[in-house]
Simulated scan of single mutants.
Amino acid sequence: MKQTHAINRQVLADHVYAEILESLMDGRLRPGDSVSIDGTARDLEVSPTPVREALARLEYTGLVQRVALKGYRVAPVASAEDIAQLMEARLVIEPVNTRLTGERMTEQTMAELEQSIRDLETAPRGPSFSEFRDYFDADERFHRLIAENAGNPFLLAAYNALGGQVQRFRLFSGVGITDANHAISEHHAIFDALRAGDSEGAAAKMAEHVSNVRARAMADAPHSPAGTPGA
């Protein structure tokens, strides 16, 4: 009975998290907006507890911020400088993860990576988050599978610390999915190198992929009126 209760509670918490995330991604909650725990609980017809849990998870991703004595508010738009620094961190972590995963590759991991690419190819890419959520999920799953199978808990913790920041620049800019064909091609190149047993080559392809994502992100990121990265 206790296990069933725990599962039901987790399902509820995940549902609340998904609802708030969709409100963020679809622009119903905008940068700087306050997020009321009690108000959100009433809107979703749940107790405040799963709302608190969901907001704590979202705070970890950087999508909301806790304000002392005021609760939570939606995080500001990621600046070009934020994006550049985030991608620098990814360039340090992800190629190493890829090399280590290649050295430990199993048939199951290979199959899961291949499936994530198939899902990326077939996922809808409409203008609303409900339409492109599956694309985001498949994209993130590819990178997470590599991080989880690298066999290094410290690198995995570093990857997890990036949280939802990878997609944060898209959150409020209205950019949506603009690089799908490039991303799919780059995922294929990484996968092909891993399948060929070329761990170093796969790491190089991952570095190239992250560098390309950085360039595309910087082109889409908000800039100050003077054309320099925002503060």
Rank of each mutant, 00 (worst) to 15 (best):
A226M: 07
E53S: 10
Y72V: 09
A202P: 03
Q108L: 13
S34L: 08
E103H: 06
M87S: 09
P229C: 00
A180R: 07
L100C: 09
D82F: 10
E148I: 03
S116T: 13
G197L: 08
G71Q: 04
N152R: 03
T98L: 06
G32S: 06
K205Y: 12
S224Y: 08
P225W: 15
E148T: 06
G62W: 07
H209K: 14
G197P: 05
V74C: 04
A183D: 12
I190G: 04
V166L: 14
T178W: 15
L113C: 04
Q85T: 04
G62P: 11
E103V: 03
A207Y: 05
T109C: 12
S47Q: 10
Q85H: 09
A80M: 03
L24Y: 09
I177A: 06
R99D: 05
G230K: 02
A80S: 14
D38Q: 14
Q167I: 08
R133C: 01
R66C: 06
L12T: 13
G126P: 15
L63A: 09
T98K: 12
P31S: 06
K205H: 15
L44M: 08
H187M: 11
P50T: 08
V16D: 04
I83D: 02
D137N: 11
A207S: 10
T61S: 15
R9C: 09
V96W: 01
E208F: 13
A75Q: 02
M1F: 06
E103N: 07
G174N: 07
E200A: 11
G201Y: 01
A56W: 09
H209I: 05
F136V: 14
D220M: 12
T178H: 15
V35K: 11
H188R: 13
H143T: 12
M206Y: 02
H5E: 09
G62S: 05
R73F: 06
T101R: 09
P153C: 05
D192W: 07
K70Y: 05
R195D: 08
I190S: 03
T228C: 01
A89M: 09
G163K: 02
E148G: 01
H182Q: 14
F169E: 06
